[in-house]
Design a protein around this nucleic acid. Structure first.
Lengths: 207, 207
DNA sequence: ATGCTGTTTAACAATTTTGTTAACGCAAAG
DNA sequence: CTTTGCGTTAACAAAATTGTTAAACAGCAT
């Protein structure tokens, strides 16, 4: 009972904090708002997480992990032939971002506002990522040799995919009021947009 | 002399404010930092602009105007045939964003954090934009009829263009440390990226 | 010189926001 | 039953940030 109760309160704070930080950013977030939204006194928040900073880092950690998962989704199913794999990777990445639509803006804002903090992280991740790039590039080159697709730089391709998938959600509030019926039905638009992004990349690699 | 001097100080504050607001956002910006960067006491800032809010609105106004200019750049030269026009529009838009790399993130963050404020603006702009869309769509349809290109929805095409052009700069700090030599030389990368974006769209409309 | 105007400064006030502390409650362990 | 330790509260403290004011100042027209 006791334990379950504390778990619950700590959880409630984390949930409220995630919401607040993702929508307002670190500077815009108010610890009092978080406490209020979580239904606890703000002293409780400090009891569990000491400082705003520490609470924030807890959220950042989780979000960066989620972000990296979304990046891996783009890799698709390695057992498929490369072109199919690409198609399914784009869709998977799109779906992943769709489930975390505020994530990219949050991560980018955080990196822009305190780049130093993530240097170590990058140093660790970079070799892993580069290895994956090399593997994928080899596969793409093979397919290009066999005349299945055009020769492309995998990094450029991935940037294009991320661009179109992520921008759809980051810029949604900016575009929605301008696009009339196209974006009126969100689900419909997202489905169309996903298809469009896949189509665009597929045509990009077409011979 | 007197007038020129005040102009200069007010200008200095505006320049410093632009920098601070664009990089840190409204909440993250500090009026004292702005004053310090402008080389004036912070009372001066309040003398000229009354409140942080008013100073911010001054910057926002200008930046929204710049943003809309960048959107019009995408239209390209109307005297060119539509495919060429598209190609030059993409390049022009890319160059525009390159000159204001922090602008999109700023505008999007602002719209996300206070959407109500921009409802009126949108109401005014929407019909204009829709008119332009219709005109362009007609041109695209004509070219498609003549077999010069595939049939596409102009709004989807514009979203793709903006996605790739804007993402290049918004996500730069996020991607740069991951991409190794590809992004090591910024100018080189931007040139390659511009070409890639054009190529991607050109292939998208290819029959 | 005098007074008028807008500018500048330094000190101060107000507010907001984060963080702390001391006392209280309560359940489990000894 | 008492002690111990965690959870909880309310009140308070500290710091940061924005905003104000009164007085000094500088240029200039009268």
């Amino acid at each position: 009972m006791d334990n379950k109760n504390t778990q619950t309160k700590e959880q409630q704070i984390l949930v409220a904090a995630e919401r607040e930080f993702l929508t307002r950013g670190y500077e815009g977030a108010r610890t009092t708002s978080i406490a209020k939204a979580a239904g606890v006194t703000h002293a409780m928040l400090h009891y569990y997480f000491r400082t705003k900073e520490q609470l924030f880092e807890r959220i950042v950690d989780e979000k960066f992990r989620t972000m990296s998962h979304s990046m891996f989704a783009i890799m698709g199913d390695p057992s498929l032939p490369i072109v199919e794999r690409l198609r399914c990777g784009i869709a998977a990445h799109f779906d992943f971002v769709a489930e975390n639509p505020e994530l990219p803006r949050f991560v980018i804002n955080e990196i822009v506002s305190r780049p130093e903090r993530y240097e170590v992280l990058y140093k660790r991740v970079e070799p892993v990522v580069n290895n994956i790039f090399r593997g994928l590039q080899t596969e793409l080159d093979g397919a290009a040799e066999r005349g299945e697709m055009a020769r492309v730089d995998v990094r450029m391709l991935l940037i294009s995919i991320m661009s179109m998938n992520i921008f759809t959600f980051v810029a949604y509030p900016f575009m929605e009021p301008l696009m009339g019926e196209l974006m009126a039905d969100r689900e419909r638009f997202l489905a169309a947009r996903k298809a469009e992004n896949i189509e665009t990349i597929m045509k990009r690699i077409r011979i």
